[in-house]
Design a protein around this nucleic acid. Sequence first.
DNA 1: ACATGTTCCTTAC
DNA 2: GTAAGGAACATGT
Length: 107
Amino acid sequence: MSVTDFERKIYRIVSQIPRGYVSTYKLVARKAGCGSCRAVGQALKRNPYAPRVPCHRVIASDLDIGGFCGSLRGRQIQRKVKLLRREGVLFEKGKLTDPSRVYDLMG
DNA sequence: ACATGTTCCTTAC
DNA sequence: GTAAGGAACATGT
């Protein structure tokens, strides 16, 4: 599978999110100089760099849990929540409990 | 509901 | 092998 420049950029950015923090599609898109957060989701879905790129640390700018492993709901999402909770990032009813856990990619 | 950027899948030359 | 059109997306306003 070939990785496009865009994807490479996205993965690099997502990889810099520290443990215990999350970021949003919007922030990642902006950091990548991309006007579409949706494109980020597409890149993450196709993410071939399994845990090397922590795609579970990327949520919607709404602070909604977003998606994981190709689906927006279901068992996979529960796994995402569980993973994040293990890192100290808590969710409740599909929403991030503590907004201060959002990593400032620009900082 | 519409806009937005990127990738993927046909179809045609 | 390359080009063009349309569909699909883990979103945002």
